[in-house]
Design a protein around this nucleic acid. Structure first.
Lengths: 183, 183
DNA sequence: TATGCATATGAAAATAGTTGCATATCAACT
DNA sequence: AGTTGATATGCAACTATTTTCATATGCATA
């Protein structure tokens, strides 16, 4: 179960967080590479605490509902480090768009092209977001902390991916547009 | 549940297949975008048949164990077409390597670089496989059938992805190698 | 003759993920 | 005074996936 590792990774560099804050941070950082709903996160936090990998404290708040904040224990850190040193397992891809393209010949090409354009827009938006982050937080790469440098590497991974995806979509649209009806 | 659609997509252009053959073809084609074990496939085939989306026939074999071959029914085809016309849902990404990079500063950079190199090798192998396929089956793009054209588009997607991934890994290794220890 | 390998299918248990529901506080707006 | 929205946490049911185990044939190899 690697959600646990993703959660530990999201918690470890930061000050102790509530499930709510973690879920938000998770979706804004690790969440680009690993999705989790708040239900999953709360459940996993409870499990990790019961196994001694996290410890929690209830914070009473005046202006908001009380919250429970979690921090990584020494044992939790060790577990994360152990996992880190192991080779990553191949990622279980599920590219629905690609499955559709596999049988794209069953539909009029206009519909396929529209769907590709829709995806292009999503990737363009994601790329814009990444570019903005790069500009805002990583303008001076030389001055990054150790942690910052790894965040930058991940951001670059996202940028590279979105660009290549857009490139492929453009190629595919062009290729499809030039189809003459055969067969 | 979209495994059902992936299975229908894998069956529809081909002659009726056994679960065994389907599993093999699946892993060699759609499987690059959607993973499924044979256990999942057999179970799903049974379910799809019970819903009238597939029909099967037992083939008695002399030199091998008997097999049950499945074909898509008219109802199954309609369901697939309906699904095709709908927008694809965003894919649930799980990039373990990226989660590791998120906390890569917790390990000596040499270990991270080794892991990146390992991934580079995997992507390089995959890319070689794709390139070979392109050369062998898609040397003359002009002459492709409608179906072939969509297979080509998917292959191009794979090639684009692997290349960009290798590009990112090289960038990351270079960036990490030039690290001076800070902080 | 036994051992492994490819073919062929599936049950069962455990783990993981999605979806819908439920509850509660407090601030701000209507 | 009531509604909406952000904060805050979680249960339960369902669906999907992974892992482990099981069985059987026939061919080739040691």
């Amino acid at each position: 179960m690697s959600l646990s590792h993703a959660i530990l990774a999201s918690l470890i560099g930061e000050s102790p967080s509530s499930g709510y804050d973690l879920a938000k941070r998770f979706n804004a950082t690790v969440g680009f590479f690993w999705k989790a709903t708040h239900q999953q996160i709360y459940k996993e936090l409870a499990r990790l605490e019961s196994e001694g990998l996290l410890e929690s404290e209830v914070v009473v708040q005046e202006e908001r509902p009380d919250k429970k904040i979690y921090g990584v224990t020494e044992e939790g850190k060790e577990l994360l480090l152990g996992w880190l040193a192991e080779p990553a397992t191949p990622s279980p891809i599920k590219e629905e768009l690609q499955v559709k393209m596999h049988v794209g010949y069953l539909l009029p090409k206009e519909i396929i092209i529209d769907e590709l354009k829709r995806h292009r827009k999503l990737h363009r938006e994601r790329l814009d977001l990444y570019n903005e982050r790069e500009k805002r937080y990583f303008s001076d790469v030389e001055k990054l902390s150790d942690k910052g440098r790894f965040r930058y590497i991940n951001l670059r991974s996202g940028i590279t991916f979105e660009k290549s995806r857009i490139g492929w979509i453009d190629e595919a649209i062009k290729f499809l547009s030039e189809f003459r009806a055969i067969k």
